[in-house]
């Protein structure tokens, strides 16, 4: 029994060493650059309802603010003035009431223009810039040549002898997207894996093992030569090959709206 187990592990090890020695797979690194949402996602039905509920409870349990006291005081003053209209206290009349203050504040607020959630790129339907769909996660997808056909996939490149996979990832991203793009790699370890076979064996290799690295977008722009697109989750399912898309989705955060 014991001997058998030892034998088994020996066989397993030797197999692995053997399979490593004449590996018939290319090692490829893919980089998944994600732009995180800039703006918080919209609240759904229950969230809106509960927020409103919490707000009413908050107001019910609160004490009156200085502003409210001032407002009440103003009202009292006005009544007194009405009753004793003969004797008008000039000081009290010329005073700015709480209501006036509130009105001017609302006016000022109305004049302030918030930036629109819908950007220029959204209006034009331009997918090549990261300044779009501010409430969603965006993934950088570039055109890549795979054998004879061109496909829309994540920027990827072959691993070279002597570098770690992380270094490969950094090099690949710079080669494909230009030095202008600034990203933060989040780990030395790959976050996803994908394997595919070449239609015909190339230089004795039957396929490629792709290791994905995850990075967050930090700044800068992608070189326009890369023909890159920033895609939402939904657009990814339309553009990317089906099995590839599934492999990437494995390690990405799912959007709930």
């Amino acid at each position: 029994m014991f001997l058998k187990r030892i034998l088994n592990t020996e066989i397993f090890l030797s197999q692995r060493v053997f399979s490593r020695a004449n590996s018939s797979w290319d090692v490829v690194t893919g980089v998944c650059v994600e732009r995180l949402p800039v703006v918080t996602p919209p609240l759904n039905e229950i969230q809106k309802k509960y927020k409103e509920f919490l707000w009413t409870v908050e107001v019910e349990n609160s004490l009156k603010s200085d502003h409210e006291l001032r407002h009440e005081n103003d009202k009292k003053q006005a009544e007194i003035l009405k009753r004793e209209s003969a004797e008008v206290d000039l000081d009290a009349v010329s005073k700015i009431t709480a209501q006036d203050f509130e009105d001017s504040a609302t006016e000022e607020f109305a004049q302030f223009k918030f930036a629109s959630i819908e950007t220029e790129a959204d209006k034009k339907g331009d997918k090549s810039t990261h300044d779009r769909c501010l409430q969603r996660h965006l993934i950088l997808v570039t055109e890549q040549k795979l054998g004879s056909d061109v496909k829309n996939i994540l920027p990827h490149g072959q691993w070279k002898e002597g570098e770690t996979l992380r270094q490969t990832a950094e090099r690949v991203l710079q080669e494909k997207c230009g030095p202008g793009l600034k990203v933060d790699f989040l780990s030395n370890a790959p976050c996803g894996f994908y394997k595919y076979k070449y239609p015909t064996a190339v230089e004795g290799k039957i396929g490629a093992k792709v290791f994905f690295y995850y990075a967050n977008y930090k700044g800068g722009d992608v070189n326009f030569k890369a023909k890159s697109n920033w895609l939402t989750r939904k657009e990814m399912t339309e553009v990317l090959p089906d099995r590839y898309n599934k492999a990437i989705r494995e390690f990405l955060i799912e959007e709930t709206y």
Binding site: S19, R20, V27, T164, G192, F193, K195, F211, E250
Partner: peptide, 19 residues
């Protein structure tokens, strides 16, 4: 997500222990 990473690391171990 952790499973995906585990799988990637396992596959990497098979490719090369150094990497």
């Amino acid at each position: 997500i952790m499973r995906a990473q585990k799988r990637a690391l396992d596959q990497l171990y098979e490719v090369s222990e150094d990497l």
